[in-house]
Design a binder for these strands. Structure first.
Length: 565
RNA sequence: UGACCGAUGGUGUAACGGUAGCACUGCAGAUUUUGGUUCUGCCUGUCCAGGUUCGAAUCCUGGUCGGUCAACCA
């Protein structure tokens, strides 16, 4: 942790483009040394790993340059937003480990101010009330290649506009009857400059302002002005807003804001392989029950990843490594997995759990005997304490750890071969018993007492297996999660992304494990030895513990097997 | 077909006119009572064509490819 890395000693040389901008602004004293960023979610869905990148970026930049970050809900569309999402978003940001400037901000806090700003523009002749229908307006706007046409209402007098706008606010018009538009340039090659809508009439109940308003500002109108009101210095958003920037600037210009102007910067959003990132598609997965809710451990949502067993620090390290740039990217899932393995390898207690059991009987071990073997809770942790693991004559091992007719390089158990039972003894397989279908029901072995763990012994074996003592084992439910899609980029093919849903993304099995895990609180992570990292799920009850597989261990044997095929 | 943005190994990201580096992945080996971890080594890259320059990933021109933009969504 403390050892200086190249990055730390030479960080000057590896600033991302936003850090360069900020350092330059600091040098030129552009904002009097101030850095104020903001994270501006719309409360209409849950946060996902892409948002996490943005959160780490905005809060991280502020931390690095002694600044602050606002959490601002962009709540300008009452029909889509709710407090359920507000609460979930706050929880996720906090969980990720970030502290916003109190109080939490809302664009809806600025509705009155925004209204005044709009009046200012109307008075300047820079905005007008338009009565075209949505369709007419859409047609009239033209296309990126062809210019739009002027609204017939564009040249109303200032007085008339003022009066109409006030009546809009008072609720004298039906929804959709009128809008307030900025008067810019219908021939601009930038569609966003073709007299964009600033206010629309919506007779809708807002989750915070209730029924006070029936006109609501659009994103473009609300966002930049909210930035200005809060004193945001660097307004960081994703690439698709690049074409909005001229409009962002136009509003500030025409409001005659010359001091303390915020500036918008755009970066490339995060994409992750084997998943989808659009809110719409994630919502679809939830609504069509392809997953069990927003916090399903297969979802790339922050709440899903939390339930999956990902930790805030692993997500932060990931966001940091992924970098910030302006080019489109797809990050390999293996990078995310790398960071959670790295963290859990150091922190997770080890426990032996058998997920696909086959009975192993040690014929020369006394019938009623059992031993308590001392085992280090985490060999990677020098401070780690010891626990006791029960050993007896009848055990479970994994079916995959035994083969009657093994291929070369198979280090596990097979007839006549010897392996070590981890923390216990070396055993030799003598015979197997099968049922009518030829399935192995029992594996009979001999153990060598002099090879007990900790005793000096010359006997060497290639393989070490995990196991549980049947009479001491506890049954738990284990949910084996895998990637949600079978396709690296499910959104980038001609087919519907749902065709690539992985049918094996969840398998539920019964596991046999050590009693030490029973009663542990949800959210606690373990390494099931030789299998992977697992976390206690909130579905756990006194009767049955539930574990989610966060990620498997790296498995070089699986690779060898695969390559042999 | 218009405007804007972008292009460095398989993936992501540095190098700011002077030795193309880092991480992940992959491969090979060492260590190992987890086929884990750790350690060592290796493979693979500047979209193309011109130009400027002693010198170009970097600057200029043209092309190619990719992305974004035509909600009263954000």
């Amino acid at each position: 942790m403390d050892k200086p890395t190249k990055d730390n000693t030479e960080n000057k040389a590896s600033l991302n483009f936003l850090e360069q901008i900020i350092e330059n602004d600091l040098k030129t004293d552009k904002h009097q040394g101030k850095v104020l960023t903001r994270f501006p979610p719309e409360p209409n869905g849950y946060l996902h790993i892409g948002h996490a990148k943005s959160i780490c970026l905005n809060f991280g930049l502020a931390q690095k340059y002694n600044g602050k970050t606002n959490l601002r809900f962009d709540d300008t569309n009452p029909t889509k937003e709710s407090t359920e999402y507000v609460d979930a978003i706050k929880e996720d940001v906090k969980w990720l480990g970030f502290q916003w400037e109190e109080p939490v901000m809302y664009a809806s806090d600025y509705f009155e101010k925004l209204y005044e700003f709009a009046v200012y523009l109307i008075k300047k002749g820079k905005a007008f009330v338009c009565e075209m229908s949505a369709e007419e307006m859409s047609k009239g706007r033209g296309t990126p290649q062809t210019p739009g046409v002027l609204s017939p209402w564009r040249d109303r007098s200032v007085e008339e506009n003022l009066e109409l706008f006030e009546k809009m606010r008072k609720g004298e018009f039906k929804e959709g009857a009128k809008v307030l538009r900025a008067k810019i340039d219908m021939t601009s090659p930038n569609m966003h400059m073709r007299d964009p809508v600033m206010y629309r009439i919506m007779h809708a109940h807002h989750h915070r302002t209730g029924d006070k308003w029936c006109i609501y500002p659009t994103y473009d109108w609300a966002h930049g002005q909210s930035d200005y009101i809060e004193g945001i210095t660097h307004s960081i958003c994703t690439l698709e807003f690049e074409v909005h920037r001229p409009l962002y600037e136009w509003f500030l210009d025409n409001l005659d804001i010359t001091e303390d102007r915020p500036r918008q910067y755009e970066f490339a959003r995060l994409n992750l392989s084997y998943t989808v990132m659009s809110k719409r598609k994630l919502l679809q997965l939830v609504e069509e029950n392809h997953v069990n809710g927003w916090d399903d451990p297969r979802m790339p949502t922050v709440s899903g990843m939390r339930r999956r067993g990902y930790t805030p620090s692993a997500i932060r390290a990931f966001a940091d490594r992924v970098g910030v740039a302006k080019r489109n990217n797809v990050i390999e899932l293996s990078l995310l997995e790398y960071f959670i393995r790295e963290e859990l390898n150091k922190k997770a207690s080890r426990v032996m759990t058998v997920l696909n059991p086959v009975k192993l009987i040690i014929d020369n071990y006394p019938d009623n005997k059992s031993e308590q073997l001392p085992v280090k809770v985490n060999p990677e942790d020098p401070e780690s304490c010891y626990k006791m693991v029960a050993f007896s004559k009848e055990l479970y091992i994994e079916r995959e750890d035994f083969m009657e007719d093994p291929p070369k390089k198979y280090f596990r158990l097979s007839p006549g071969k010897e392996v070590r039972l981890k923390y216990a003894y070396i055993i030799r397989c003598d015979s197997v018993e099968k049922d009518d279908q030829g399935n192995i029901t029992e594996i009979h072995c001999t153990y060598f007492p002099e090879t007990k763990s900790g005793l000096p012994s010359d006997k060497k074996v290639k393989g070490t297996l995990h196991w549980v003592s049947i009479s001491h084992a506890e049954e738990v439910e284990v949910r084996l999660y895998d990637r949600l899609f079978t396709e690296p980029q499910p959104e980038n093919t001609e087919k519907d992304f749902k065709e690539f849903l992985n049918p094996d993304s969840l398998k539920v099995v019964t596991g046999y494990t050590e009693p030490v895990v029973i009663g542990v609180r949800p959210g606690k992570s373990f390494q099931f030895e030789r299998l992977g990292y697992f976390v206690v799920d909130p579905d756990s009850t006194d009767e049955k513990m539930v574990f989610n597989r966060t990620v498997t261990l790296r498995d070089s044997w699986a690779k060898i097997e695969k390559n042999n095929q």
